[in-house]
Simulated assay, not measured.
Amino acid sequence: MQLRWDGDVNPAKLGIMVCGHGSRNRKAVAEFAQLTTGLGRLLPRHPLAYGYLEFAHPVIPSGLDRLRSAGVAQVVAVPGMLFAAGHVKNDIPALLNRYSAATGLSISYGRELGMDARMVRAAAARITAALPPEARDAQGVAMRQDTLLVVVGRGSRDPDANGNMAKITRMLVEGLGLGWGETCYAGVTFPQVEDCLRRATGLGYRRIVVFPYFLFSGVLVSRIHRAVDCVAADHPPLDIRKAAYLNDHPLVLDTFRARAQEALEGDNAMNCALCKYRIQVLGFENEYGAPQSSHHHHHEGLGKACNLCDGDCTGACEDDVKAKTHYH
């Protein structure tokens, strides 16, 4: 498969750049690389590279250098992030603009994965895999009203991104026929995971499924799992289950491919209806009209991979990271 190219340029001269945030956790970095490999299999005729904003190598400019070395004439840069907050709206485009101005490379910027039916179905598949075989009604529809779903997002200082997380929860609860749903966040905003879970235990549901709406592993997923274990230990009769995060589900890869195609066709506009930089959102009026800039240029590639755990993050690094360096 190749992206549709309307001009006369050889498709091999169109490069794909996947822009990630970066993590100190080696498993998270490996999973990001694995996802880009899967995307490369969907687009085998196009040179593909990836890079990170911070905490890991290669950084985004290094990935762009690699594409230039491969002789690409145009790059489609896709943010490897679920929702549009500061990284998608400011940090990545500011970095891409600086690189394009310095090198002359033409870069088209795609939108985030965002609200997409494919992403909802990928999430539903992860949740369904965590559920037991369910009873069905006379029409063969699964009966799941005894299950409460807790969806955990990363959390942001952007209310639009946090609101989209709540919308994902509602679509999953209604789509899967679950009894109830709660949305919480692993950082930055409220409610936090453990507070949300403790409230959920009092709602009278037989089962709680906790789903991290994350692409990859890392310290925040570890934080979620530790909160689940803590609450489950205090409520042994409750069936509290952990669903797997999204990772490289085929529908996630297909959404990435679609975002690259949109950017190439110029149909890549974000939904800015509630963007705090475009309109005066209640409580965030002072950020209206703020210039697009990045605070990551002095953090690119910062730090070494964490050596406190192999594979899944245990959370042992959190206090160390908070004490020593840039921390969200």
Rank of each mutant, 00 (worst) to 15 (best):
S69V: 01
L82F: 02
Y52V: 00
L82Y: 00
L95C: 13
Y50K: 01
F55E: 12
H87K: 13
K89W: 08
L64E: 05
A85E: 03
A85S: 03
G51K: 04
Y99R: 10
R66T: 06
A56E: 03
N97E: 15
A84N: 06
Q74R: 15
M81D: 06
V75H: 07
A73N: 06
G71P: 07
Y50N: 02
R66E: 13
Y50C: 01
A85N: 01
A70P: 10
S62P: 00
Y99S: 10
N97G: 13
G86N: 12
F55D: 12
V72D: 04
V59N: 02
G80P: 05
S69Q: 10
L48W: 07
A84Y: 03
E54A: 15
A73Q: 04
A49F: 06
P79I: 11
Y50P: 02
L53G: 12
R66F: 14
A85G: 03
L53N: 06
N97P: 00
L95D: 14
L67T: 11
L64I: 07
L67N: 02
P61E: 12
R68H: 06
G63K: 04
A49S: 07
E54D: 12
Y99H: 08
M81V: 00
S62H: 00
V88Q: 03
Q74P: 05
R66Q: 09
G86Y: 13
D91R: 15
G51P: 00
Y99G: 01
L48F: 11
L95V: 15
P58G: 03
Y52N: 02
R66D: 13
V78R: 00
N90Q: 15
E54Q: 14
R66L: 05
V72E: 06
P58W: 04
S69I: 01
G80F: 06
A70R: 04
G80V: 03
P79F: 13
A84L: 08
L82E: 03
F55K: 12
F83A: 03
A56Y: 00
A84D: 07
A84C: 06
V76L: 10
